[in-house]
């Protein structure tokens, strides 16, 4: 009898918490670091009971982790290909939704990058240029494409150092270990970086479009809050944040 009472008491204490609050775990590419933080804060104002955790990292790593059953409800990839690959493996319960196009910029904490172009990288006083690792970081692949398209690759390759992801790349530049780097526009416009130096927007004609996509993973099946968050991404406030961070939204491109 005592045991049943205890169990009942336990249930009355725990159940309301379980029913009311949902926990959303998001795996997001590092370029979303600042934008996603703001979107989550805004989302929580209208959904105060839900708990939202965001993990930032490289898209490739999350891809591997989700394949191995990592507990992420949403996966925001910097390259839509990774999201598509998970979806075709049956690991998504939503369509792959394109949410933005990423842009790359030259950014430096010690030089005025806003007065530069890619050709300025040939300057002999620049000995280290940081880019994200092109083998698996989508921003790194685009940086290589842009350098190749402008015919600078052969001359600049010996100066390149490779960050693990785009945030790590920015860190090389921020600490001055690389004088300049090619990073995501979304990071360069954040006060953390923009207070230290301006950027030069690399023309998007020099690289293939960096289309970004997200999915709701299989683990989030039957979690209404996750779907609400997914829908919230196309809401006006979320779009405003994304545009503020220099992302081009998919329907804007169609209008061009």
């Amino acid at each position: 009898m005592k045991l049943i009472q205890t169990i009942l008491l336990f249930c009355t204490l725990i159940l309301p918490l379980v029913v009311k609050a949902e926990k959303i775990t998001i795996a997001a590419a590092s370029d979303l670091k600042f934008a996603m933080d703001e979107i989550v804060t805004a989302f929580k104002q209208t959904h105060p009971y839900d708990e939202v955790d965001v993990v930032y990292g490289s898209s490739g790593k999350f891809h591997t982790q989700i394949q191995q059953g990592a507990p992420y409800d949403l996966y925001f990839s910097a390259d839509i290909k990774y999201a598509q690959s998970l979806a075709s493996a049956g690991l998504a319960v939503s369509d792959v939704k394109a949410y933005a196009f990423g842009r790359i910029v030259l950014w430096s904490a010690s030089l005025d990058a806003s007065k530069m172009t890619l050709d300025s990288l040939l300057d002999l006083t620049i000995s280290r240029i940081a880019i994200a690792n092109p083998r698996h970081a989508p921003y790194g692949m685009r940086a290589v494409e842009a350098l190749k398209a402008s015919g600078l690759w052969d001359k600049l390759e010996p100066k390149l150092v490779y960050g693990e992801n785009i945030a790590h790349t920015a860190q090389f530049v921020q600490t001055g270990n690389a004088q300049i780097g090619i990073v995501a526009l979304a990071l360069a416009v954040n006060p953390e970086l923009s207070s230290k130096g301006d950027y030069y927007l690399i023309p998007d004609t020099l690289h293939t479009p960096l289309e970004q996509g997200f999915i709701i993973t299989k683990l989030a099946e039957g979690k209404p809050a996750v779907r609400q968050f997914a829908n919230y991404m196309s809401s006006q406030p979320a779009r405003a944040v994304m545009i503020h961070y220099g992302f081009v939204l998919p329907d804007e491109v169609a209008g061009n």
Partner: peptide, 13 residues
Amino acid sequence: VASVQIYDHVEAL
């Protein structure tokens, strides 16, 4: 080094 090379292989799938 080798440990980084392995990490890159995994990241690149």
